[in-house]
Each structure stands twice: as structure tokens, then as C-alpha cells.
Design a protein around this nucleic acid. Structure first.
Lengths: 215, 215
DNA sequence: TATATTTGTTAGATAAGTCTAACAAATTAT
DNA sequence: ATAATTTGTTAGACTTATCTAACAAATATA
């Protein structure tokens, strides 16, 4: 039986692997709020179970088996988030933390029912793709808002940060998922971005623009 | 922070205390599927935290604090069961095991939302009362079907066993919550019971009749 | 390139929750 | 009332997931 801690390590390693930088001990340590030696001993355990591949002083990569298990947990997380928003009436900025708990429920029936009620949804309320029962993810081709050329108009399809603080901020400045965003101007020095959304001109910091995914 | 194991002990002790026999080490051991010495060490811990009162070789009783915490978990369990049936479309025989997992979710928001969606419900799908936010339970005056005199007609309002096996059996023989049950005859030797439900005559064993609560 | 800094590893300790083996108290049966 | 049985307790071991302290490798800096 997979433990709660194991599930969290698999998920964190999966998520870190999606960045170019890959999953290292110190990044995991920061993400999981756990000291470095703990990471070390846990990753050794996961390696014994053939869930990650790992050579000393090199980073970690999930095996196929590990990846499959990580995607199961991610599926549960994202299905839950959508269920919370669509069926229970939560705001998109409220659901991340609740889903962090619900994703560890074992009962397959519970999540199958969510999937049924939501009609096999493909994306969660933050635009992240929901893996299907076999761990398959819909292909997406996303760009960072911070990299789009001046003058272009793009569609806001996902965020890379689901924290309540960030999402509340976006709501506050009137940017919601699937909005059209026109790039008016960008400050070279710090990436400060002038955009037009719903005919209103707003300014976003470079940090914020890096968390907004568009197509 | 209350641990999962702690919550399960509190709940089990609370439930056992409801029977006349009270909560003893061996009963807890059986209920929680844990060996006797484990019960001993855990109950000692709970006593240190002033959640149960306990004198060697005597049974366990929850303190006010312990009772309050047990009722919080029971509230989560029963709210969840009703949510699963009413909102998610599960059958009453499917929800117990799922609720055993969901009841340990910490997020108060999650359960407040269920409560809101269900409009402050008073009873779960098995007729058990749902404690309110302060741990108050609606007073109920229930009798066992096995104790009702011959000739009387009663209303089936709750079960004392929420297992899938038992509930499926009841559904199969056509007895559902809030049915009227007329006692036709009872065998003195083993309590075998002849009843009439919806104008159909059925026979129930003594064991089954003891798990059916009526008023 | 040599040194300093950052990152990763090993060793050993701790807390929670479980177990088995051995024993003691309470209860039941003879 | 004594013996047998059941129930409860103590002692000590094990596993999981964490920690701190000490050290080693890799990387960055002077």
C-alpha cells in the first residue's frame, strides 16, 4: 500500500521534472518542507521500490511505474479541484489546499463518480490537463505570457501557480481563465507588462506574467 | 494536530460507549483490528492528553474534550455519507467505506460547504443523527425491531450496521428506510420474525431484527 | 587552480503506531 | 475455593517518516 508521504514525493518529483531544471534533492526539500537528509532516505526507499531512478549526486527521474503512480495522484487532485468548483460551488482560489487532502483518498469509486458527474473532464479549474484513467495527458502547447511578442493577442488557458494568493490577485485585476489578452508593451529592464483584457488596460509584473500560460 | 489513528480511537470509543457494555480493551481491539497491547499504549496516550479517563483493568470513558472531538469526526462521517448519497448519487450501501476515509479531511470549509449544500441535515442515509457544529445531537427514542410486541406497527428509522452486506440484504428483501413494518409473529426460540412491509410478508432472522431501529 | 560555497550523503536519534512474548488480574467454571 | 480461562498489562522490538550533526562531492569564485 502506497503511503501518504510516498504519494507526495512522487507527485513533487513529477512536477519538478516538468521544469527544465529537473528534480534535485534541494528542490524537493524546499517543495515538501522537509530537511535534505529526509529526502535522501525517502528517495532511496523509492528507488528500492523501483519508482525512481537515482545515481548519487545526480537528480531523480521517475521510472514508468513511478510516473504512472504520480499521474494517478495528479488525476485525483485535478478531478477534485474541478468537482469542488463545478459541483460544490467553491472559487478557483479556494480549491488547491482541499484537493491536496482529498487526492489521497483510496476509494477508486469516489473518483470514478466525480469523473462521471463531470463527464470525463479534460482540464481542471486552473487549466491544467487531467490525466485519463491510463495516465494519458492531452497534449498542450503552452507559452508563457512573459515570452509573447508585443502586439500579439493570446488566450489565457492555464496558470502554473494555484495558490490562493495568486489566483485572488488575478481575479482582483479582472483576469480570468480563457480571457483574451493583448500585449501592449513590455519593459525590457524588468519585464513589466502592459496588457489589454476586456478592453481594460492593466499592468502586470514580470513574475506574474511568468505564471500565466497562454496559447 | 490530531492524527488519523487518534481520530479512529476516539470514534471507536465513542461508538462502544453507546452500548450498555461500554468500551473495553478487547472490544476496541476487535473493532480497530489492532492487537491488545497496541490498544493499551494508545489509550495511555489518549489519557495523557486528557481525552479519555482510564483506570487499569477498568473500561475507558471519553472526557468532555474527547467526546467533543469524537463527535467532530462523526459529524464529518455522517455529513459525508449524506453528501455521497444525495449529491453524488451513491447507494446507501456504498457510502460507509468512502466516508471512513473522507471523515479525516481537515479542511473545515469542505464540510461547511457540504452542510450548506445539504441545508443543515439532521440525519444521515442510515438514519443516524448528524451532530451539529457544537456536537449537539438531536434526541432520538429508538427501539430495536427485535423488541417490539407482536401486532404493533412501527416505522423503520435507522440501522445500527452500515455495512454494505447488511444494507444490500435489506434492499434485496424490500425493506428501506422509513418503511412501515408490522410485526406478525415471533419465534420465541430464536427470535425469527415474521413481518409485513408494503403488504408483503417477509421473515427476518433475530440477528437482523436487532440491527433495525424503529419508532 | 585553489578555495569557498552550495549541495548531497551518512550516521544516528526520535516519535508514532504497530507487533510478539511473557506475565498478571479478573472472571468463570468445577 | 481453587483451578481454568479470559482479559488486560508490561517489556521490548520494528517500521515509517522525520530530525540534527558531521562530513563529502560538486560547483562557483577569486
Amino acid at each position: 500500500m502506497r503511503t501518504l508521504a510516498e504519494e507526495n514525493y512522487l507527485k513533487a518529483i513529477y512536477n519538478l521534472s516538468q521544469n527544465e531544471t529537473g528534480a534535485t534533492a534541494s528542490k524537493l526539500s524546499e517543495k515538501l518542507n522537509v530537511k535534505l537528509p529526509t529526502i535522501n532516505s525517502m528517495v532511496n526507499k523509492l528507488a528500492d521500490k523501483e519508482l525512481v531512478e537515482y545515481k548519487k549526486y545526480k537528480g531523480f527521474i521517475l521510472t514508468e511505474k513511478g510516473k504512472k503512480q504520480a499521474l494517478e495522484v495528479i488525476r485525483k487532485h485535478r478531478l477534485t479541484e474541478l468537482f469542488l468548483v463545478k459541483i460544490m460551488g467553491f472559487g478557483w482560489e479556494e480549491v488547491h489546499d482541499i484537493a491536496e487532502e482529498v487526492e489521497h483518498i483510496k476509494s477508486p469509486l469516489f473518483f470514478e463518480k466525480m469523473d462521471l458527474i463531470l463527464s470525463n473532464p479534460k482540464y481542471d479549474p486552473h487549466g491544467a490537463p487531467i490525466p485519463d484513467k491510463n495516465g494519458k495527458l492531452p497534449k498542450t502547447n503552452l507559452k508563457l505570457l512573459s515570452n509573447i511578442e508585443i502586439g500579439k493577442t493570446v488566450r489565457f488557458v492555464a496558470v502554473s501557480d494555484s495558490s490562493s494568493d495568486f489566483l485572488s490577485y488575478l481575479s482582483r485585476v479582472g483576469i480570468s481563465l480563457y480571457s483574451s489578452i493583448e500585449i501592449i508593451d513590455r519593459e525590457v529592464f524588468d519585464g513589466l507588462l502592459k496588457i489589454k483584457v476586456n478592453n481594460i488596460t492593466t499592468t502586470l509584473s514580470g513574475q506574474v506574467a511568468e505564471k500565466i500560460l497562454v496559447e
